[in-house]
Simulated scan of single mutants.
Amino acid sequence: MTTRSSDMRVFYHVHMISDSTGETLMGVMRASAAQFERAEPIEHLFALVRSPRQLERALEHVADYPGIVMFTMVNSDMRRAIEDRCADLRIPAIAVLDPIQATLSGYLGAPLMGKAGAQRALDAEYYARIEAMNFSMAHDDGQGDNLAGAEVILLGISRTSKTPTSIYLGHRGIRTANIPLVPGATLPEELFTLKKPLIVGLTASPERIVQIRRNRLLNLREDRSTDYVDEENVRDEIVYAKRLFAKHGWPSIDVTRRSIEETAAKVINLLTEHRNTI
Rank of each mutant, 00 (worst) to 15 (best):
H139F: 11
A246I: 08
T256H: 07
A185Y: 08
R208H: 15
K242H: 08
N178W: 15
A177C: 11
E189H: 08
G170A: 10
D141T: 00
M137Y: 13
R221G: 03
T176W: 07
L154Y: 05
V239P: 00
V234Y: 09
K196L: 14
V210S: 03
A185H: 07
Y228H: 01
E231V: 12
E151P: 06
L191C: 08
T176F: 06
S136M: 07
I130M: 12
D230A: 03
R129I: 15
W250E: 04
E262G: 00
I212F: 06
I179V: 06
P183N: 01
D227H: 02
R172V: 12
L154C: 03
E189M: 06
A128G: 13
T160W: 14
D145S: 03
M133F: 08
R129L: 13
I179W: 10
S136C: 07
L191I: 14
D140A: 00
D236H: 05
A177N: 12
E125I: 13
H139C: 02
E190R: 08
I199V: 14
D236M: 02
R243C: 06
I238T: 01
T203Q: 03
A128S: 12
G249L: 09
R258W: 14
N219D: 13
S225C: 04
V152H: 09
N146A: 04
E262H: 02
K196I: 14
R120P: 01
I167W: 04
L155Y: 10
G142L: 10
R224A: 08
D123M: 05
I260C: 03
A204R: 05
N215Q: 13
A246F: 05
G173W: 15
R258F: 14
G184N: 07
I212E: 11
L181Q: 07
T186D: 12
F192N: 02
E207M: 01
I199H: 06
L220Q: 07
N233Y: 11
I157Q: 04
V229E: 12
A132P: 15
L147V: 09
T226Y: 11
P188A: 05
G170F: 15
D236I: 04
S136E: 14
P251A: 00
I157K: 04
D123C: 02
Q119H: 15
V234M: 12
D141I: 01
P164G: 01
W250L: 01
A124Q: 15
N219V: 04
V200I: 14
N178Q: 08
E237I: 05
A128C: 07
G149T: 13
A138W: 09
T203G: 01
T256Q: 07
S136W: 14
V182Q: 04
Y126T: 06
I153V: 10
F135W: 13
R243L: 14
T165W: 08
I253H: 01
E222V: 04
D145N: 10
H171F: 15
L122Q: 10
G184S: 05
I238S: 00
Q119Y: 13
M133K: 05
G144K: 12
I157E: 07
D227F: 02
G149N: 12
L154H: 05
L198Q: 07
G173A: 09
N146G: 04
R214D: 13
A138E: 15
F192A: 00
I174D: 10
L244I: 10
E131M: 03
L147D: 12
V182M: 03
R175C: 10
E237M: 02
V229T: 14
A148N: 14
Q119K: 09
G144T: 13
S225K: 09
